[in-house]
Amino acid sequence: MLEFVEWLSLTPWSVDLRESLYMYPWIESAHVLFIAIFFGTLLFVDLRLTGYVFKELSISQMNTKILPLTIIGFVLMCITGFLLFYAVPIRNYQNLFFRIKFFLIIIAGLNAYYFHKTMNKESKKWDKDSFIPVGMKYSALASLFLWSLVIISGRMIAYNWFDCGRQPQSEFINFLISCTAEPDLYESLDGI
């Protein structure tokens, strides 16, 4: 994997992105905007399921009306997110918060998968009975909680506290970020 990201970091576009003065901030700003579109619209889809907003609309109406925009936001967020990763691949690959974020996205994705599988099967029934199973409400709240954590850990990627290039780190941290730093090498740097 490390070889792969090293190769990735040497591809011309990666070098260009890394060295550009304005491209990176523009992509970063766009990423933030797409986060707002994705999370902001998801907020209302999930709140509908808990019964806080848009009670006059049925679940399936809410989904056909709002969810496409959520998905557009998600796709654009992923594209800009990938570009941000691609600009500095090695650092991101060995970044603790990036790894936490990736892990959280998988969990949030599984939650979304479970949620939509159940919903597609049963939402017509919910519309008729205007009854939503309690499990779905928890799933909606879990979705909001998990994506909030994704946003928070994503914001933390910018900080280098646990970076491989910043030693000494504890063995555990180096293990988590697949960093093979020689601790002896950094002993003289203690206290800097």
Binding site: G40, T41, L43, A158, Y159
Partner: peptide, 21 residues
């Protein structure tokens, strides 16, 4: 600073949702 910043970003996403809708 980073923690406050993260919640600032969450606030933006929430406001963003209301604005978008």
């Amino acid at each position: 600073f980073p923690v406050i910043q993260s919640f600032h970003l969450l606030g933006l996403a929430i406001l963003g949702g209301a604005v978008v809708l």
